[in-house]
C-alpha cells in the first residue's frame, strides 16, 4: 500500500498499475473468481439449451433460423472489440490516457454494434414465429443468447462509466484496477460468444 501511494505521487504508473495497490490486487483476484463462477453459470445455460434445442414443437428449427453471414459479422465485431480493449489496457499501462480512452471508445462502439446486430436478429426471429414463449427451444435460446447480450450491454455501460471517471480524474492507481477488471470482463464476454457461435449457431446449422 505504501509503495502505491508513493507511485501516485510521482508522475508515472508502475509496470502493473492494476496490481500495485493492495485494493487493486484484491480486486483483480476477486474478479477472476467471479469469472470462474460466471463460467459455471453460462455452462448451465448451455446445458439447458443443449437439452432443449430440438423441442421446437414444429416451429422453425435451428437450420431454418440461423444465418451464417450475420453471425460471422457479429463474431468479427466482438473479437475485434476484444483486441481493442486489450490495446486500451496496454495504453493504460503506458500511462497514455488519451489513447486508452480512444481504444476503450472503439470497444464500446463495437459492443453497441454487436448489440444492434443482435436486436436485428431477434426481431427477425420473432417475425418467423420463434419467440421466448413459442416453445422450450425458444425459451432456452433467448435465455442463453439473451443473458450473453445483457452481459455485453452491462459491459458497454460499465466501460463508458469508467471512461467518464477517467476523463474527470485522469489515470491513477485507483482507476487502473477498475479498467483492468472491466477489460477482463469484456474478454470473458467474448470467450462466451466463441462458444455461443460454435455451439448454438454452427452446431445448430450442422443439426
Amino acid at each position: 500500500m505504501g509503495a502505491g501511494n508513493h507511485a501516485t505521487a510521482t508522475t508515472g504508473l508502475p509496470a502493473h498499475p492494476e496490481k500495485a495497490t493492495f485494493e487493486g490486487k484484491n480486486k483483480v483476484l476477486g474478479f477472476w473468481l467471479f469469472l470462474g463462477a460466471e463460467t459455471v453459470l453460462f455452462a448451465c445455460l448451455f446445458g439447458t439449451y443443449l437439452a432443449l434445442k430440438n423441442s421446437h414443437l414444429g416451429g422453425p428449427t435451428t437450420q431454418d433460423l440461423f444465418e451464417i453471414p450475420l453471425v460471422a459479422a457479429a463474431t468479427i465485431i466482438l473479437l475485434t472489440s476484444s483486441l481493442t480493449s486489450v490495446l486500451a489496457v496496454l495504453e493504460m499501462k503506458r500511462n497514455h490516457l488519451g489513447r486508452m480512452q480512444f481504444w476503450f471508445g472503439v470497444t464500446v462502439l463495437l459492443g453497441l454494434a454487436f448489440l444492434g446486430l443482435e436486436i436485428y436478429e431477434f426481431v427477425h426471429y420473432v417475425h418467423e414465429g420463434h419467440t421466448f414463449t413459442s416453445s422450450a427451444f425458444g425459451s432456452a435460446f433467448y435465455a442463453l443468447v439473451g443473458t450473453h447480450g445483457s452481459h455485453v450491454l452491462f459491459g458497454t455501460v460499465w466501460i463508458t462509466t469508467l471512461m467518464v471517471q477517467a476523463a474527470k480524474r485522469g489515470l491513477n492507481l485507483d482507476m487502473a484496477p477498475k479498467f483492468y477488471v472491466a477489460s477482463l470482463y469484456w474478454h470473458f464476454v467474448d470467450v462466451v460468444w466463441v462458444f455461443i457461435f460454435t455451439v448454438v449457431y454452427l452446431m445448430g446449422k450442422v443439426g
Binding site: L35, G36, T39, V40, A43, C44, F46, G47, L50
Partner: peptide, 11 residues
C-alpha cells in the same frame, strides 16, 4: 475448476 465443473454440468 470452473471450466471443469461447467463442462460436467453442461454434459
Amino acid at each position: 475448476s470452473g471450466i471443469f465443473i461447467g463442462v460436467i454440468s453442461a454434459v
